[in-house]
Write a protein that binds this DNA or RNA. Sequence first.
RNA 1: GGCCCGUUCGUCUAUCGGUUAGGACAUCUGGUUUUCAACCAGGCAAGAGGGGUUCGACUCCCCUACGGGCUGCCA
Length: 472
Amino acid sequence: MTAPMPHSRPIVTRFAPSPTGYLHIGGGRTALFNWLYARGRGGKFLLRIEDTDRERSTPEATAAILRGLTWLGLDWDGDVVSQFDRKDRHAEVAHQMLARGTAYKCFATTEEIAAFRAEAEARGSYALFQSPWRDADPATYPDLPYVIRMRAPRTGETVIQDMVQGRVVIKNDTLDDMICLRSDGTPTYMLAVVVDDHDMHVSHVIRGDDHLNNAARQQMIYQAMDWEIPVWAHIPLIHGPDGKKLSKRHGATGVEEYQAMGYPAAGMRNYLTRLGWAKGDAEIFTTAESLNMFDLDGIGRAPARLDFKKLENTCGHHMAMMEDDDLMRELDAYLIAVAQPQIIEPARATLKSALYCVKERAKTFPDLLDKAHFALSQRPIECDEASAKALDSVSRGILKILTLQLQNVNWTKADLEVILNAACAANEIGFGKLAAPLRAALAGRSAAPSVFDMMLVLGRDETIARLADISA
RNA sequence: GGCCCGUUCGUCUAUCGGUUAGGACAUCUGGUUUUCAACCAGGCAAGAGGGGUUCGACUCCCCUACGGGCUGCCA
């Protein structure tokens, strides 16, 4: 029984996506966990682009991944590392393994391997490819292209001590001699990750559990090179609401799609942190708090399902918690992201002064804009069907008189209340009967903030002008 | 096929052998109210199935079912 390795070395985590598309929401969460773990402990968080597959890697994808991370507020230390740029180093290590005898040259062609597998399949069994070159005498080597294969142990077992999955035992006879260096001299993923993680001093490998099995083979490379094995933490993938692997048919899968839907980044972080991780009953927390609380043993072992309702609720809390300046700044960024025109003065100032009464009810930025409609629209205010019903001849008359009374009142909530209540009393109506036409005049909608808040935000002149428009 | 991982309210989860199995989201009911939202109070709701181990299992072990992953000169 191997005890979890004590790690005295500095904490270094990394996110290592392959640039074959946008940043997946699951990848974003993996990055977040790495970031939280490192940043919460004064460690480093590195970013490496696994672009060794030249066919599928694109610079556009890399740019999209960087944008997604940046939006999520995940900053990395140092330069972004390109795995492809390090191919010489990978080859160097492969040859060191050769020299150490922990790897060997294999001259088997892909055709031979395919034939081997086909034959095994025909027999109804599944056999791992066993290279005849594993123990061949170098004197018999032909002058042909070769791959460098790991000389993996064929007996015994490899034990992965995982911070999330616990102790995972993989029998060595279920693993073949993986290829480390291809016949064209380029490294395979399995070699490249290990070499890069080692060279980058990565202490904790936190990644999707689709790599759990790979960890065993990678651990063999660490051992073959006598390198210190990192702490493993394989986290479950995110699933769609139906429990199946998250895919396009579930809706948004890209981080940038969530940005475009207008979710505040802090809310997104909170939701993603809490998805598959828990610390007691903590639900809503700031980034600083999550940095403080996050740990690896709070991560669950089962895949979590995405729940938009909870995402919205979490984002709603963050909208309400946000400072007005931060809200405006993120709103600007949101509008740029969705290619909408910026909100400029004087509407901008009005909107900002209205935030206090709309941010508590909004869950997303488009939602915020919609709730602040009264502050952004210009005279004459167009009434929708529902609000227009409140404007009959009687209520118009009441508003007309009210307009006159508003000329000289102190523009404070207390004084406005006095005036409005007096108007209700004079006309022998309940406050609702007055608020409805007033709301129609000020907002043009039946759903809007409190009439007092709207009057305060709009100011005396604008309020009176909007009322006058109605009675005219 | 083989190997690996997983399975607590509809959802995210707490529990780390002894609890009326707790919280949050969703949902339902009531309250507040000036509309919507918010807010407040309350309700409904869970250990996949079967065997063990134990005085006692959600918790430990085994089997089954279901879900996921790996099994590439992809990452």
